[in-house]
Structure formats: structure tokens, C-alpha cells
Write a protein that binds this DNA or RNA. Structure first.
Lengths: 343, 343
DNA sequence: CTATATCATGCAAACGTTTGCAGACAAGAA
DNA sequence: TTCTTGTCTGCAAACGTTTGCATGATATAG
């Protein structure tokens, strides 16, 4: 229970009998070569034995680098993000970086103050999972001229570094799957059009729909205001109220699909017997719900990991590929089935 | 795209025409009273207008406080933790603290290096959600003499500050519920006995079982090695293999219950017709699985929030209550039903 | 009117690093 | 020998704050 004193460079310098600058150099991998190797040896041993740890604040003050990056997500409570965050952390930690993550809850004001806090702390880089297509917070961050990479989403702007998925391929696969089961009248619950994923998946839907020669009735798509369950429910109500018949719903997101499922069963429509449903993201637990959801799997962890390494390159002054797009995968479970004859 | 220069105290001092120390004092809420109030006014206006932000590293170097706390969880990917983390962040942010969260994955080595990183960064306090009953990492952290509060779990040690739930009340309610449905032979899947929750829920089970006059056949309990789905599956296999009959399983955790459900259905046992199952925690989505799980609801967000405020008191040198125990709630869904006659 | 208390501000040191510069010393070349 | 070159190490400044102490001015008391 004795209060441990913090060891400083000065103290290990005294212990070894050299100057503090020598110790500093001996400890830095990049400056080590300037110092005689047995001195290096001694210094390292002493510092280990005395349990020396560099004072992070002092280091930052001097070098203006914090070895810290900010990560802004909409809501860590959303099961998509934790794996992504793990990916970011794992890739960052290899180079001694630490991630500070904050939530915006979709609130622009909150996002702005969060950003303020982070740059106030002097982060070396920023990873945004929260970015909208036109996003003044992004612009603000960019004007601070710190390296940024967006993940999962992109702003409508050129020259932004980002990791995304192949959205059009994803919806193409889902739609093709549905068609292969005999569905012709397929509705969509589209995501918020202010988000790149929402817009791209919707665009891909109309594109694939026409290339598959499906009915292209615009009233077969409902636009969700947010990616959550209640928006999903609301959208199927809307779809049903519009009076059009459909045998399948392609949802822009798993949470929308979960809501859709709930709304359908409240209407006594059975999935997949009466209507098939597909999701998007393959978030955790979606294989255990009733019925297990057919969905598009994205690579959450990998997306984060790639974002981390891209950001590191940026912070090192290198020029990584501007955008990397990851492949997706269709995973078929029980929420989709062959369409019944009569319909 | 112009690189913004960082404003320092010196620059705002020059702008106002006073000394930097005056500016420093004028900006600090605790030192403000030393300065003439119109000077304070001017300083504040100037600093606002110039967009001054205190250099966090310099502040830390001087004061030895980072306004940062470390949060260590087993795995942020586990749906229990994100709400808790939100609670921590929200309570901390009111006082300008920031949380850095790290994962241990149950790996003691990893936890140690994580702790090292965190104290290296000079965190002002620590919140542990990962602690085991005997935990040398906890001891290590305690020896650094930084304030600690553990959340959800406690080590087997006196004088540790923590936020927990009323475990025995929780299992008592679950068990009573099962009994009220006519169950008499009730199995338990207990959690890891190295964790306080595991041990306490198990102890509460044997206690409640005897006070409810149930068969107390020790072979009716299986011990899981970890709180996850596959451990749950494995445990019901074990239970079945032991050859004893039971009409209900009380699980120490939702994830164990989810695994149990999977194993049962693989054995063609239908829940709740053939066997009822209860979980613990009421984690997200558990109301959407098949069948919706009867479980004990704990207050994840609140737990985090309380932990945050307790830690703040500790960091301010106050002496908060040593342990606060939060009430739980039984939520009845469809995984429990009246026992069938013949059995 | 002088002495003293009070208030507001400035001065300068310190926190623990990193790093440009210069000096010491040894070894090799002329 | 002397000059050059190279290798290793020390010196000291600087990063942006906070804070104990000293100082000047102003108000109050005697």
C-alpha cells in the first residue's frame, strides 16, 4: 500500500551515471544508435529494474504528439460498433497508440463538443464512424488539419480517406437471392438518405431492380428516418397502409429488419411464409432471433482494423490508398423462403 | 484547409495586455476570485474569441492530473458493457473527465499490460468491470494508490469500493417464479466461480432452493467455465448426460441461457413446453430471440453512472459509501411456462 | 500624514521530456 | 607530428502551464 514514486529520466540517469539526454536517447529506438551499445544496455537494464515509465504528458508537451487517436461513433450501444472498435484498437495498439472513443447519439451539437474535447486533448488522428453525407463536423475536423479516416460511411466529398463495403454488391446479392426464390414484388425499407450507406443501398436497389426486370413501383419503398427497430416497424406499417402487395422486404439494415419482423407478426403476417425479409450487416444475435435472419455480412472487425492502419500511415506522412472497399457476403438463414404459389 | 495554429496563454495575455499568470488565474474557476472582475471579463472574452484551448499535456505536466480515467472491461463486444460504459462516460463528462476503455479478453497478461499503459498515461482513477475474486491485477492497481472502483463484480477483499446488484434477490426471484409455475426439479447452470457474480448467484441458488424446500441434488448444477453461449450449450449436454430429469434450468447469465436454448433445441427439447429457462442480465435482443427469454433485469447504465460518480468522489478526496447495491427486477417472457402434468 | 492592511497583478521556477549544438576523445591519414 | 574525421556524450533551451512569493497600488486606521 506504499505510494509508489514515479521514476524520472533524471533518476535513472543518476543511477547509471550518465546525463539525462543520454538516457533519453538510449531509450528511443530511433536515437539509440547514437549511443554506445553497452551504455544502451546499462540504461535499459536500469530503467527496467527501476520500473521507469516515460511521463506521457511531458513527452506530449515536448513533441506535440499524444499517441492518441479519437474515435467517434454514433452509439457504442449499437452492436455494429464494438467489433469495429476492437479492430481499431488492435491495429492502433501495435504502434503504441491509444483510442478514445466517444458517442454522438446522432446529435450534431454533441458531436461538435466531443470533437472539441478531443482536439483539446491533442489527438494525433481521428476516425469517424458517424459521418453524414454533408457533415460540417467533418469539415471542422478537416480544417484542424489532423489526419482523418472515415469508416463504414463517407461524406459526399472527394479526397477523404475511408474504409467502406461494397454496398451495391451487397444489395445486388440480397435481391438476386430473393428473386431466385420466386419473388417479384419486393419492397425495400431504405435507410436515412443523409447517410452514404442509406443512399448507396437505395441507389443499388433501384439499379438492381431494373437490371433484374422487376416491377419498379416507387411506392414499394419506405424511407426510414433512422437505423433502428421502431423506424423499421413504422416503415412496414407505411408499406401496408399504401395498400400494395409484396412478398418480400429488403431492409437496409438489420435493426430495421428486426423492427419489420415485429410489425409483421403484430399484423399476423408470418415470416417467411407470408413475407420474406432480409437484413444488412449481420449483427450479433441476429442468427438467434425468430426467424433467424437472412442478411448481408459485413466485416466489422476488419473494417476497424483497416481504418486503424490507414490512419497510422496518414499520421506517418505516408499516402495510403484513398479508399478501400471490402467485400460482403450473403448469409442465408430462415427469414427468406420460396414464394407461395397463389401470390 | 489552412493549418490552424494553437493559441497559448502567452498570446491571449499579450492580446489583453496582462501577464500570462493573470490569464491563467482568470480562466481557472477556483482562482478567478483573485483577479479584478473586469480583467476576468476581458480575458474570458479574448480567450473565447481567439479560440484558446488549454494545452492538456502542459496542464498535466504541471498539475500531475490528466482528467482521464481508465475503464477496463472484459470485452466491449459483450452487450452488457456498452450501456455501462455510456453510464460511466456520462457521469464523468459532467466534470470534464474522459474515459479510456480497454479490453482484457479475460487474459490476465493482457490486463496487466493494459493497466501499465493506463497508469503510464497517468490516469486519475480506474474503473474495473473485469475484476476476479482474487485478482492480482487489482492488487497491482491498488498498490499504485490511484482511486479504484469495481463495477458489477467485486474481489474477495474488504475495503474496495464497488457498485453491484442484489444477486441473491435476483436468483431468489427467478427461482420463486419457476416454483410458482409448478417446477420442482430445477437445474442450474452456474457461472465461473472465480467471479463474484458466479459465486454469489450459485450460493443464492443453494440457499433459496433449500428455503423453498426443493430437491437439492448437487448433480443438478453444472458449472460453466465462462459466461458465453458455448459454455451454456456444453452445460446442458452435461446435465442431460448426468441422466437426471429436470423441468427447468436457471442460468447464471443470459449468454449461458442462449447457449442452453440452442442445445435444448438440438436435442429436440422444446422450450418452454419441455423445459423452462431463465437468464440473467436482460441484455439487448434477448427479448427477440426464440423464445423471448424470461430473465433478471439489471441496471447496466445506472451501474456505470453510479460508478462514475463514486469514482469522482474518491478522486476529490471525499469518502463515498463503500459499496452500493442496486435492486434487480424479474421480467417474465416466454421461455418459462407452467410445468406439464405428467412430469 | 504616516503606518498598515488588503487587493490585484507580475515574476520566475518548476513539471519531465526531446533535441540542436558543441565539445571531448580516439583513431586514421598525411 | 598534426590535421581530419567520426563517434559518443553533455549542455541547455524549450514545450505551455500552474503557483508560491514578491511587489505595487489603494484603502483604512491610528
Amino acid at each position: 500500500m506504499t505510494t509508489k514514486k514515479r521514476i524520472t529520466l533524471r533518476e535513472v540517469a543518476e543511477a547509471v551515471g550518465v546525463h539525462v539526454s543520454t538516457v533519453s536517447r538510449a531509450l528511443g529506438p530511433n536515437t539509440r544508435h547514437l549511443i554506445n551499445s553497452d551504455v544502451v544496455e546499462q540504461v535499459i537494464r536500469a530503467s527496467r529494474q527501476m520500473d521507469y515509465r516515460r511521463h506521457a504528458a511531458a513527452y506530449s508537451l515536448k513533441t506535440n504528439r499524444t499517441k492518441t487517436v479519437g474515435v467517434i461513433v454514433p452509439d457504442i450501444t449499437n452492436a455494429i460498433f464494438p467489433p469495429m472498435i476492437r479492430g481499431i484498437e488492435d491495429s492502433l495498439s501495435t504502434a503504441g497508440y491509444l483510442a478514445i472513443v466517444g458517442n454522438t447519439d446522432g446529435d450534431n451539437e454533441r458531436e461538435r463538443t466531443l470533437l472539441d474535447t478531443l482536439v483539446g486533448r491533442g489527438i494525433d488522428g481521428l476516425i469517424l464512424a458517424s459521418v453524414e453525407r454533408k457533415d460540417d463536423v467533418f469539415d471542422l475536423a478537416a480544417s484542424e488539419s489532423i489526419p482523418i479516416v472515415t469508416v463504414n460511411r463517407r461524406p459526399d466529398r472527394d479526397s477523404v480517406h475511408s474504409i467502406v463495403h461494397d454496398e451495391s454488391e451487397g444489395v445486388r446479392r440480397a435481391l438476386t437471392h430473393l428473386v431466385s426464390l420466386g419473388h417479384r414484388r419486393i419492397a425495400m425499407i431504405a435507410g436515412p438518405q443523409t447517410l452514404s450507406t442509406g443512399a448507396e443501398r437505395y441507389a443499388a436497389f433501384v439499379q438492381s431492380r431494373s437490371s433484374l426486370n422487376l416491377d419498379s413501383d416507387e411506392s414499394l419503398v419506405a424511407f426510414a428516418q433512422a437505423y433502428n427497430e421502431s423506424a423499421g416497424e413504422h416503415c412496414v406499417e407505411e408499406l401496408i397502409a399504401a395498400g400494395h402487395t409484396f412478398t418480400a422486404i429488403l431492409c437496409a439494415n438489420d435493426r430495421l429488419a428486426v423492427g419489420a419482423l415485429a410489425a409483421l407478426s403484430r399484423r399476423n403476417l408470418i415470416c417467411p411464409k407470408d413475407v420474406s425479409v432480409t437484413g444488412y450487416n449481420d449483427m450479433p444475435m441476429v442468427d438467434r432471433i425468430d426467424p433467424p435472419l437472412t442478411t448481408i455480412r459485413i466485416q466489422q472487425y476488419r473494417m476497424g482494423f483497416e481504418a486503424g492502419s490507414m490512419l497510422q500511415k496518414l499520421m506517418n506522412g505516408e499516402s495510403p490508398a484513398q479508399v478501400v472497399v471490402l467485400p460482403v457476403e450473403l448469409v442465408i438463414r430462415s427469414s427468406t423462403a420460396r414464394v407461395l404459389d397463389g401470390r
